[in-house]
Design a protein around this nucleic acid. Structure first.
Length: 272
DNA sequence: CTTATTCCCTGATTGC
DNA sequence: TGCAATCAGGGAATAA
């Protein structure tokens, strides 16, 4: 499941490889009716053709290809989307949903087992998502504002970490990891957190994302980078998918519960 | 405004 | 063993 570190890894990989290239031709599968948003797929392909990719950026879990025309090509991988660059065509896959041939003959390939992934071609990112919260690894992630949000919400603290309007880019893996690192129970009502706990969480979210970036993301199931390689942070998690295994800090068995409709992993001793 | 639930989709897992 | 029901997950849509 690509979250901020995974999408950022793809962005960095693609930046040097496809910047300056133009789209020579585009194809979207008939079997992916929800992939292209806002406009019909054939219109999307037609508009994309000839566009030069100036640079790549990212907002939360959205990969953004900034086109020289000023248009924005946004891609969200959701759960199982893969966005890969291949020099010689796209690898055979029953889940290939779209491809984009570039002017050097290489291909951007979009495969997606569950068809939850989406793409947009818009003038402004606000047309894609107008309510996205601050980037957790940039100055806009303000502690005071974060604390104020926590204070007035009764939802479980994990639900707020997953809320993309509160902060952009954290998903199930890094929400669990950040809460462990901060010593906070995921089901705890956000409004009951002390100020020091909120400050700790604010810092740990950033630490956990940085660590995952250093490992080129986590590959628990489908995630691979733009070259098809797995990340390695799944080998370095403290709680995520470690149900029944001993906590590295205290030896207590990691528990799994449901919070905000998502599988949630925590150490009952280290997290209060 | 909030929080909780449903839905999309399909391979993997669980249960009888 | 076999086959159906349930689960997983991001996040939008819908319900309460």
């Amino acid at each position: 499941m690509p979250e901020l570190p995974e999408v950022e890894t793809i962005r960095r990989d693609l930046e040097s490889v496809i910047s300056g290239r133009s789209v020579a031709s585009a194809w979207v599968s008939e079997n992916a009716p929800r992939l292209v948003q806002l406009i019909p797929p054939d219109e999307f392909c037609k508009q994309l053709k000839g566009q030069r990719i100036e640079r790549l950026s990212r907002r939360g879990k959205y990969l953004i290809l900034n086109l020289q025309s000023g248009l924005i090509w946004a891609v969200h991988l959701r759960m199982t989307g893969r966005f890969q660059h291949n020099v010689e065509g796209c690898p055979e896959s029953p889940y290939l949903r779209a491809w984009f041939e570039l002017d050097d003959g290489s291909f951007l390939c979009f495969a997606d087992l569950r068809k939850f992934g989406m793409m947009w071609l818009v003038d402004d990112f606000s047309a894609v998502n107008p309510l996205l919260g601050p980037e957790p690894l940039e100055d806009g992630f303000d502690l005071k504002e974060f604390a104020a949000t926590m204070k007035r919400r009764s939802a479980p603290v994990k639900a707020l970490l997953l809320d993309q309007t509160v902060l952009a880019g954290v998903g199930n893996i890094y929400a669990d990891e950040a809460l462990f690192a901060a010593g906070i129970r995921p089901a705890r009502a956000a409004s009951t957190l002390t100020r020091p706990a909120v400050a700790r969480l604010h810092q740990r979210v950033q630490d956990v994302l940085h660590a995952a970036l250093g490992d080129r993301g986590s590959s628990f199931s489908d995630y691979v980078d733009a070259s098809g390689q797995q990340g390695s942070h799944q080998l370095n998690v403290q709680v995520f998918r470690r149900t029944g295994e001993p906590c590295y800090a205290c030896g207590t068995e990691i528990r799994r519960i449901k919070v905000a409709g998502r599988s949630t992993h925590y150490c009952p001793r280290c997290q209060k």
